[in-house]
Structure formats: C-alpha cells, structure tokens
Design a protein around this nucleic acid. Structure first.
Length: 425
RNA sequence: GGAGAGGUGGCCGAGUGGUCGAAGGCAACGGUUUGCUAAACCGUCGUAGGUUAACGCCUACCGAGGGUUCGAAUCCCUCCCUCUCCGCCA
C-alpha cells in the first residue's frame, strides 16, 4: 500500500517504476479524491474548532450560573448540522481512496528484471546436478500408489480433487521433513518457532495483501467471517500488526510449519494429478521483520537459509530472480527456488523468498521506533523454507531406485525412526 | 450456548457530564550531580490526519459503531474482545 502523500508528490515516478504493474490504475481519480478529501477535511476541522470554542464559552457561562446565550446555542446547533453533513461527504471519498490505494501493487526493486511473464525471469544460481538414473523415472503418483504411501482416490471421494491421504512411510516422511526443517531453522538459523492461527479475519488478510484483490483465491468461512490461511506468511506477519517494535529488537525472525489452504481458482487443468498443486498442503515458512536499511541483506540471508534445506537433502535446484510481471502483488523483489523434478525434467517452484519492503507494514501498521525516537514502518520478508508436499515429490522422484523403492536422504534419517529406504510393504 | 465482570497512553492506574488528550506511578530518553554503579533532582516522553519553508498551530482518537445532550472517557443502545462461573468439549 502506498502513502497518498508520496503519490501526490512523486506520482509520476511511481507510475513509471510500476510499469506494466500500474496498468489499470486511475491515477487522476486518485489525485482528485485526495484533493477533495483534504478540502473537505480542512473545512470540517475549521468548523469543529469554532464549535469547540463556542462550547467552552457556553460551559463557562453555565458554571458561573449565568443565563443561556441563545445566540451561541443557535450557532453551535448550526455548526453541528453542517459538520455532520460534511463528515458524511468525506467518508465515501476516503473509502474509495483507500480501496484504490489497497489495489496498487508494490513497486519492483531496481534490481528486478523487467518483463511480462515467467519467461523473463533470470537464473541467479544453480546447485547440484540432475540425478543420473539408469532407468526411466516413475512419476511420484504411480510411485506413491505402488508403495502405498499416497492415496489420491480415497481423498477425492471425501473431499474432491486436489486432496491427498498420506499413509505409512509417506505420512512419516511428510512429518520428518516438517520437523527437520523446523529444527534446522530454529537451531542453526536463529528463527523463533511459532504455531499461529490457521483462520484469520479480514483485517489480517488485508494486512499482508491477499485482500481486497484476491478474495477468490481464499477459502472463506462465512459463518464467522474467517479465511483459511493460504500461507503462514499471513498469520505470522500479523503477529505484529498495529505494533511499534523496538528498533533494537530487529530483525525479528520467525518460523512456522503450518497447513496452507488455497482454492486454486483459475488453475483448472493445471497440475491436476499428484501432490504438486493441492487445496491443502504443509509448508514451513520463514518471516522476518527488519529495519529498512537491512532488508536486502536479510533477503540474501533468508535465501541462503532456504537453500541449505535443499542442499542438505541433496536436491538439485536453481534460484531465479522473478521479473516484474511474474512477481506477486505485494513483493518488491522475489527469488524463487526451483527444485529439479526428474520425471517432467523441469525445475518447479519449491520456495519463494520475497522482500515486501514497507508494503505490508504500511497496510498492517507495523512500525519500529528508532534510536532518535521517531517511528517508521518496518520491512517485512518471507520465504518458504520449504513447501513440504513438493519436497516429497522431489525426493520420491530423485531418489527412486530401479526396484521401485526410494532412498531417504541422510539428513532425514534421525527423523525417520531408523528407516533409510521406503519399500513396498 | 447461559450468567456475571471488565476493556483508558509502552506498562500499571485515577478519572461518572464542561476548564480531560486525560492525574499519579513505573519504564524509556536527555541533562545536572557523581571514582564507577546506584540514588537524587530537572526536563522530555501516545497515535494518526490536516496545515506550514520551518518553529508551530489545528482536528480526531479513552475497544468499534450509533444515540441522548448546548456539551460525553463519563449516560443509553448494538457489536467485538478479554476474564470468572456454568454447560459442552480435546
């Protein structure tokens, strides 16, 4: 979200930096509403001031036991009426202005490549090599079913498409990954583990940028006006909503392993089979709150923390810098980490690490107090560290053996109760 | 779900109709004093919006929204939240 004052002063600059992302925004209307609002506000405030003055005069007379001054009473009554009418005129203007502001996406950082879609993303670095298999790899769906660790059919029966039952070693693998990642980030990388709510209210969803624009992507509980979180980013970032943090406490780093719920509206026909795109999936999420001048260092750090997971698991991946057109609404800069999927022979997103700068902080009113006593908005960042379901896919497909079994990466052994291989039961 | 109590500045806490954006305390910050620390003393010390070149000035906010009144932190209504007891439940 942008400060209307900044748009007022340097709207042209913002417009040009937004580029294609700023298409469809009515800048003239924005500025017109801003002027209208301030004019009306000035008028009302003058009248309120006059009213206050008159009221205190009336009060003084009362206290002195003097008779009422009808002239003053009349003036106050007239002012009250005018104020009420003018205030009523301001409200819709403010609402409209606010709604427009909430629908402007964040400005890409200057280091973000410009481009319309993912074909313009830039590879930033690459780690490892694709596994050299002596046979043609089996897709994780068939592998999971033949090992009896994934059950898509029965899940569909009770919940529809894009749901899965994990069974036996499959469930254990999912749980092992979650615990391994949480331990890594808390013990080695200094994040504080939290288990946040999975249901949040409208204000929370607006704070991180899901609302008002992307309501159709969310599962909604109408009876209580709750939304299911599409990512722990929402609840963890909202931990500090409407707070003023102490600059000395920054950066604040949190990690949460939670289920995520996404309607996947508009993705019909995409990744319909398997674990890749689910309505419910588990993810370990990293969230940082930093001082503004430190946020890009923090993004680098966050990215490395995420990459450590894949390196320890021995999964081939690459990091891409998203171009302006492929970035999410709230992000100023995003690195996607893409893991190698041997069956499809492509890299698939397994983590997304973003710096939102002050975009979310402004919406959620998360500030810090500097040593000079002044307050300013923090910068927020987050990254998946990493998506569990897709990690399961990568492990199954990368470490599968000719006999249909799957080797478990060493890093997970302590979490798998001594098993180092998943075999048919 | 039922009954009751309550929501005031970073925290504690006073304030039941006008002079209250709000006493007092704690914490914090600046200063004086001082081997150091501590203590004492003085001062500063909420958020947001508008306006100004700036100092500043103005407006709003005592959970949220309405209402009563010339006037509301204070009275009334609705909602939200917290706490206690009961019910239910893991």
């Amino acid at each position: 979200m942008f400060d209307i004052r900044v748009i007022r002063e340097s709207g042209d600059k913002i417009q040009s930096r937004l580029g294609d992302r700023g298409k469809g925004i009515d800048w003239d209307l924005l500025l017109k509403l801003d002027v209208e609002r301030r004019d009306l506000l000035t008028q009302v405030e003058k009248k309120r001031h006059r009213r206050k003055t008159v009221l205190s005069e009336i009060g003084k007379l009362k206290c002195q036991g003097k008779p009422d001054d009808t002239k003053l009473l009349q003036e106050v009554e007239k002012l009250a009426e005018e104020i009420r009418a003018e205030e009523a005129g301001i409200k819709p203007i403010e609402d409209q202005l606010n709604d427009l502001l909430l629908r402007i996406p964040n400005i890409p950082h200057e280091t973000v490549p410009s481009g319309e879609n993912e074909s313009h993303n830039e590879e930033f670095r690459r780690w490892g090599t694709p596994p050299q298999l002596t046979f043609s790899p089996v897709p994780h769906v068939e592998l999971g079913e033949s090992l009896d660790i994934l059950d898509f059919k029965r899940a569909t029966r009770m919940s529809g498409s894009r749901f899965t039952i994990y069974k036996g070693a499959g469930a254990q693998l999912e749980r092992a990954l979650m615990n391994y990642m949480l331990d890594l980030h808390t013990q080695n990388h200094g994040y504080l583990e939290v288990i946040p709510p999975y249901l949040v209210n409208r204000a929370g969803m607006t704070g991180t940028g899901q609302l008002p624009k992307f309501e159709s992507d969310l599962f909604y509980i109408a009876s209580d006006d709750f939304f299911l979180i599409p990512t722990a980013e929402v609840s963890v970032t909202n931990i500090h909503r409407e707070e003023i943090l102490d600059s000395a406490d920054l950066p604040l780093r949190y990690v949460a392993g939670t289920p995520c719920f996404r309607r996947e509206a508009g993705s019909y026909g995409k990744d319909t089979r398997g674990l890749i795109r689910q309505h419910q999936f588990n993810k370990v999420e990293l969230v940082s709150f930093t001082n503004p001048e430190e946020s890009y260092d923090e993004l680098d750090r966050l990215l490395i923390d995420v990459e450590t997971v894949l390196q320890q698991l021995g999964l081939h991946y690459r990091v891409v810098t998203l171009c302006s057109g492929d970035m999410g609404f709230s992000a100023a800069k995003t690195y996607d980490v893409e893991v190698w999927m041997p069956v499809q022979g492509v890299f698939r997103e397994i983590s997304s690490c973003s710096n939102f700068e002050a975009f979310q902080a402004r919406r959620a009113r998360i500030k810090f107090r500097g040593t000079d006593g002044k307050t300013d908005f923090v910068h927020t960042l987050n990254g998946s560290g990493v998506a569990i379901g897709r990690t399961v896919v990568a492990i199954l497909e990368t470490f599968q053996q000719k006999d249909g079994s799957v080797l478990i990466p060493k890093a997970l052994h302590p979490y798998m109760g001594g098993i180092d291989k998943i075999e048919k039961r």
